[in-house]
Computed example of a mutant assay.
Amino acid sequence: MDTKRLYRSRTNRIICGVCGGVGEYFGVDPTIIRLLLILFACTGSGIVAYFIAAVIMPDQPA
């Protein structure tokens, strides 16, 4: 059974690879995830959530 895991992307990486990894997990273009993050960051808590995800999410295996 192949389970789907959430990883930070190694190929779609701009800062830490969180948006690229979320985009790959859901099958969505990472640019859309980045735009949503920018809108969420305007509330102030989006930046904190991004860096928490960068610490918690493991890197994609090689």
Rank of each mutant, 00 (worst) to 15 (best):
I56F: 06
R5T: 15
L6I: 09
R10E: 09
A49G: 08
I56P: 02
A41T: 05
F51V: 10
D29A: 09
G23H: 09
D29C: 08
R8Y: 05
Y25L: 11
I32A: 05
L35P: 02
R10P: 04
S45Q: 09
C19W: 04
I32H: 04
D59V: 13
I32S: 04
A41L: 05
R34G: 10
L6F: 07
D59P: 12
I52N: 05
V22G: 02
I33Y: 01
R5H: 15
T11E: 08
F26D: 10
V48G: 05
S9A: 07
G20F: 01
I33V: 15
D59F: 13
R34P: 00
G44F: 00
S45M: 12
I14E: 09
R13C: 03
I14Y: 10
L6T: 04
S45L: 12
P30I: 06
A62P: 08
L39V: 15
G44N: 02
R34Q: 10
I56C: 06
K4C: 08
I14A: 07
C19Q: 08
T43R: 03
T31S: 11
D29P: 03
R13S: 01
G20M: 03
A62T: 09
A49E: 05
A49S: 14
I47N: 06
T31P: 00
C42F: 15
C19E: 10
Y7K: 00
A41K: 00
V48W: 07
R34F: 09
G20R: 02
M1Q: 13
M1K: 14
G44P: 02
A41P: 01
T43V: 13
I14N: 07
I56V: 15
S45T: 13
I15E: 14
F26M: 07
F51C: 12
E24Q: 14
R5Q: 15
I52T: 12
Y7E: 07
Q60S: 13
A54L: 03
I47W: 08
F40C: 07
G21W: 02
M1A: 13
A62Q: 14
L36Y: 03
S9M: 05
Y25K: 06
R34Y: 08
Y25M: 09
I14L: 11
F51H: 12
G44W: 00
A49L: 12
G21A: 02
T31F: 11
R34I: 11
S9I: 03
V18A: 03
T3V: 14
Y7S: 03
S45V: 14
